[in-house]
Design a protein around this nucleic acid. Structure first.
Lengths: 201, 201
DNA sequence: ACCTTTGCCTAACACTGTTAGAAAATGTAA
DNA sequence: TTACATTTTCTAACAGTGTTAGGCAAAGGT
């Protein structure tokens, strides 16, 4: 029965449309303004059908966050694959992280809880660790790591991440007035990333 | 008329009780669970009286955030006042920032938008900049600053802040499972703060 | 033709922030 | 004390939220 397939594809299609509508609303009005009825309106349904695809609003947002982690991981891979040394790859990946945060602000807010409370990612096997693993691997692949313990690698990773996430979330959460100039943010980011990488030598 | 004063004091007292009740609820149930009716219940009133003290829920939360900035600034001053050099004061202040973030988790989330969306602090003259100014002053007071531009000082400040805020918010937003050990967080923080301070020499 | 399943919607529940207007308490003046 | 005025507080409601139960109608299978 090919009709079975077609019906399944249609259901999958509705699921995608829900996710797409949710993203569109969050992009134009912010996460705060996202509601089940608004999503349903946008895809010409009523609110309850969403619950046939997602257990609740939180699960929907978690699914979106997972998409975000996949997107970010993909971008990080693209930007690093043609480079040679682990150090170059690491820097390219963090720059991808940085660019993603501003280009896909809404995804980032959801993924890392900047002014949005959602998602706890308790369960293992989520895509939460996908971007982290990519960088982790490159740190381990570097010459520096040969003489280091896992704890040292862990510390390096968190040093990178805290600067990146800190600077990003300060920028994303800031008000209209209190402006760190883009240029200064960029320079602070570049300097810090380089300094941490150099400390691995 | 002393009764006028007494009545004014009573009004002020209700205002304080509203703020205290809101903090207590957020501490036991989280910001997500905070509602106007819950606050009113806790102080034996009905919800509308809150609107005689605060324009709306956001204004209430902004008032709490302002209290947070004052508390943090006070702690930073206490911890640094008996120290001699600007460098020592800076480090003591960032350690105060760190301790405050975990001891007063709910305040911190509100003040810096970690998993809570509130407050935009558009208007100048808020207490938002109070903690920043304390550290800024010490950076300027250091010998290093003599040969530097304002932009350099700005960059140093944001380097400090991004590490501190990044590491704090990663810890505050993390799920139950995904645990960075406290010890590693501490060490990453200490190393980074020392490294940035040393870079000022 | 019947029955079962599926897809979808209407209506409702228990909440949320917020406001308008009535009621009760208080203060002031005659 | 009585009368009016003011302030304080509450009730009731509105519009919105996430979520669920129940029913209608079309489709599928026999």
């Amino acid at each position: 029965m090919a009709s079975k397939d077609r019906i399944l594809r249609m259901k999958e299609d509705v699921r995608c449309k829900i996710l797409a509508a949710a993203m569109q609303i969050s992009r134009t009005e912010g996460w705060q303004a996202l509601s089940m009825r608004k999503i349903a309106d946008k895809i010409d349904y009523t609110a309850p059908i969403i619950y046939e695809h997602f257990a609740n609003k939180e699960a929907l947002m978690e699914a979106l966050a997972m998409m975000g982690f996949k997107k970010l991981a993909l971008l990080m891979q693209e930007r690093s694959q043609n480079l040679d040394t682990p150090e170059e790859k690491i820097l390219a990946m963090w720059h991808a992280y940085w660019d993603f945060a501003f280009a896909e602000k809404e995804y980032y807010q959801l993924m890392y809880g900047v002014q949005v409370n959602c998602c706890q990612f308790d369960n293992k096997g989520t895509d939460f660790e996908l971007p982290a693993e990519l960088i982790w691997d490159q740190i381990e692949a570097s010459a520096w790591a040969k003489t280091k313990t896992e704890e040292d690698i862990c510390k390096i990773y968190y040093t990178y991440w805290s600067v990146a996430h800190g600077l990003v979330s300060i920028n994303l959460a800031k008000a209209g007035d209190i402006n760190i100039s883009e240029q200064i943010s960029q320079e602070v980011f570049n300097n810090a990333m380089n300094a941490i990488t150099n400390s691995m030598k």
